[in-house]
Design a protein around this nucleic acid. Sequence first.
DNA 1: TCCGATTGCTGATACGAATCAGGAGAACGT
DNA 2: ACGTTCTCCTGATTCGTATCAGCAATCGGA
Lengths: 345, 345
Amino acid sequence: MTGVRRRMPRQADVARLAGVSQATVSAVINGRAREAGIPEQTVRRVEDAVRRLGYVANAAARSLKGKGNRLIGVHSFESMFPIDQLDFYHEFLIGIEQQAVADGYDLVLFASTESADGRRHIYRDGANRLALADGSVLIGVEHNASDLARLAGEGYPFVHIGRRTVPDAEISWVSADYATATAGIVGRLAALGHRRIGYVTSTERVDVHMDKESGYRAGCAAAGLPELMYVVDTAQVTDPWLDAVLATGVTALLLEGAEIATLVAALLDARGLTVPGDLSAAVLVNLPAVGAPRWSSLRIPRNEMGRMAVKLLIDLLADPGATPARHVLLPCEQLDELTIAPPKA
Amino acid sequence: MTGVRRRMPRQADVARLAGVSQATVSAVINGRAREAGIPEQTVRRVEDAVRRLGYVANAAARSLKGKGNRLIGVHSFESMFPIDQLDFYHEFLIGIEQQAVADGYDLVLFASTESADGRRHIYRDGANRLALADGSVLIGVEHNASDLARLAGEGYPFVHIGRRTVPDAEISWVSADYATATAGIVGRLAALGHRRIGYVTSTERVDVHMDKESGYRAGCAAAGLPELMYVVDTAQVTDPWLDAVLATGVTALLLEGAEIATLVAALLDARGLTVPGDLSAAVLVNLPAVGAPRWSSLRIPRNEMGRMAVKLLIDLLADPGATPARHVLLPCEQLDELTIAPPKA
DNA sequence: TCCGATTGCTGATACGAATCAGGAGAACGT
DNA sequence: ACGTTCTCCTGATTCGTATCAGCAATCGGA
């Protein structure tokens, strides 16, 4: 830094130099000169003074006056830049940033609310940090239903990435359309000739799981197939369990997540069964692009979700009165058919 | 959202609820309660009201009054989350976020200043957007010397990631110590027996390049070797050029960046020369962890640089008066010796 | 010549928080 | 009983900008 931080010139200084009032300077600077009926002459005098003094508008004062400060908050319930899941938040952020740029908003990453255990809270000292921004996009795998409910109750505008239902609160969200995607996979398997398609899901029945479940049911119904659901936690995925599953005559399995998939793969491998030779399978999450075993799985449109969340939020901000919660489902592609094939004859 | 979006509560609202004056609320909130002789009783009443209303200080008003708002800006001259260079900004951001969390600051990503051509400016409509944050960390490959000089001239506190010299302005920065790293590689090559070590650098002589050059010179001087510099732009990296280079009897080459390295590799390959069998080589940048050809190269401590930039900035903020610019060089490791070997006998 | 409209501004005020001078009331000393 | 000190606050003002009501001067028309 070169100089001492000398007092910045303000509109009053410009006004004095140009021989007009501060209000006139404001009008000229904000391009309201015509509208305010200020002649070219005066405009030039003011612009000249601005240049001579190197006047720069004070952002704080400006946003204090104006309604918002064109700041969109981004809050996650975990560290935003985790080293081990590089692409998880990253892709959402790309989308969020793109849309923010497009609409002329800046982003505030709320990081300061991390407690000793690494979890992040919206409220600190009982105060809502997010309120600093005009509105916020929340991302989080973890639930923090009470924070969410409170936030919604306060009427603070926010959009959640990922469907979230919280008792006593209507929350706006953007989500991937898991239901349709899951139904689509069931349909695809049915078209290939599968008649008994199983669905292995997790015991934590969070919103995402419920979406997939309803998609599975819809898919089975549409294809006239029986529902064969297996609700397990990872500790239960053992040989006897697999025996029981296979005994039901399934020729294809939908698997909830990477962990279950890995376990099932190991068990199948141990008894010499191949995928998709002996059994078709698809994993209902977005597996990382690189990484050991490849599966038929889903592509979650993270970038689009980020973009849409910001769009939705800006909509919400523009809407002055009370707004019902809004929801957007984005199509979720099936990635490929690596581990899907017609049933064994 | 459930409720109508009511006006954000202000200190006056808190005051009314707590049955005190706005001034008292301000004192309590700023921890000046003792000092102002406000009894525990009243403090608790105020804190209670704050909590009940979900009051949060208005950042604009606060910074208008000359107080900080615990916001650190991050500004890059290009898009912060570019798809093609996933790890470039990302690692800096990890470091920046970590340090910000540690010191209880939030981050503002200044994205809104993107012009149609995708470049980002600090000034928009003549106003310094960054002024919203207490200080900023700037990252950028691109130069925008005039913006930087202006910012420095205004006395706005910022730290640049990457060494930047700008005429007529003293800029604080954090940089990788390219000079020492380069000298180290020269030394290592000399120790392996190389007597003629060439240095291929780019015609854009920006600060980073100058650092490496001085390291190269220092390394040569220390080892008593001649300086063999080749300043080229990529269009010049052709067969005749390589002939000329090899004619000088070099047994090892330092290469400025990935692009030059790729071109040189292709030319060497075409004439059946191997690296490091026939020629040792090292690339003086941080090559991506994954990607086709592996080279001996540098590891730039991006995480640490991000952390240090924030630390430095917070120091700067704490220092009230005029501060001379501060500079930090972080050690920059040589990654490995993949393409370095003793000279051919 | 007087009325109304238009031009070209200005003064006052609000935004929300911080700060400072000061003041009411209680407690204490003499 | 009266001055002094303390405790616990409050009112008024400030930061720099935006906005709005309004005003003086000029002009056009009848």
